[in-house]
Computed example of a mutant assay.
Amino acid sequence: MKDSELTRRVVGILTQTYEWRRLLREDPDRTDLGTEGAVADLIYDMVPTRFEFDEDATPAEVAQAMGDQIYPAIREIAGTFAAVFAELAEVHDRDDPETTTTDVLQQLAVRADDLDN
């Protein structure tokens, strides 16, 4: 997949996620939002579904071969999400210097324990 297509898909996922969040804040009981799909499709399109390994490979060697073949796609997906986020953060910080992205991230980290409840 080309970098431009991956970036467009990541932007689409982030945009859709933000819209779902807005709609759920308006009506927490909504059930009509298809919240799966785009992320799973992206991973399916990027991650190999066929793996190469020696016929006589041990289970550990098969696992290592699969990891080696999956890792580049996961790294590329995560890197693109991070790059898009960084660009968004720069715009946010420029337009709202009183509440920086770092402040927001620190607040999210503090509230992370609430996610387990």
Rank of each mutant, 00 (worst) to 15 (best):
K2E: 15
K2R: 15
E5A: 15
E5L: 15
T7L: 03
R8P: 02
R8G: 03
R8L: 11
V11Y: 05
G12M: 11
L14I: 11
L14V: 07
T15I: 03
T15P: 00
Q16K: 11
Q16N: 11
R22Y: 14
L24P: 09
D27P: 01
D29V: 00
D32L: 07
G34C: 01
T35Y: 04
A38H: 01
A38Y: 01
V39Y: 07
A40G: 11
A40I: 01
D41S: 04
D41G: 05
D41L: 01
Y44A: 07
M46G: 01
M46Q: 10
V47W: 04
V47F: 02
V47T: 11
P48I: 02
P48A: 02
T49K: 10
T49I: 00
R50M: 09
R50N: 04
R50D: 13
F51S: 09
F51Q: 06
E52D: 02
F53N: 07
E55L: 04
A57G: 03
E61T: 02
E61N: 04
E61A: 14
A63P: 00
Q64A: 15
G67Y: 12
Q69A: 09
Y71G: 08
P72Y: 10
A73V: 05
I74G: 08
R75T: 12
E76P: 01
G79C: 08
F81E: 09
V84C: 08
F85Q: 15
A86G: 08
E87T: 13
L88G: 11
L88E: 13
L88N: 10
A89I: 12
V91A: 12
D95G: 01
T102G: 11
Q106Y: 07
A109H: 05
A109K: 12
V110N: 12
V110F: 13
A112W: 06
D113S: 14
D114S: 06
D116Q: 07
N117R: 13
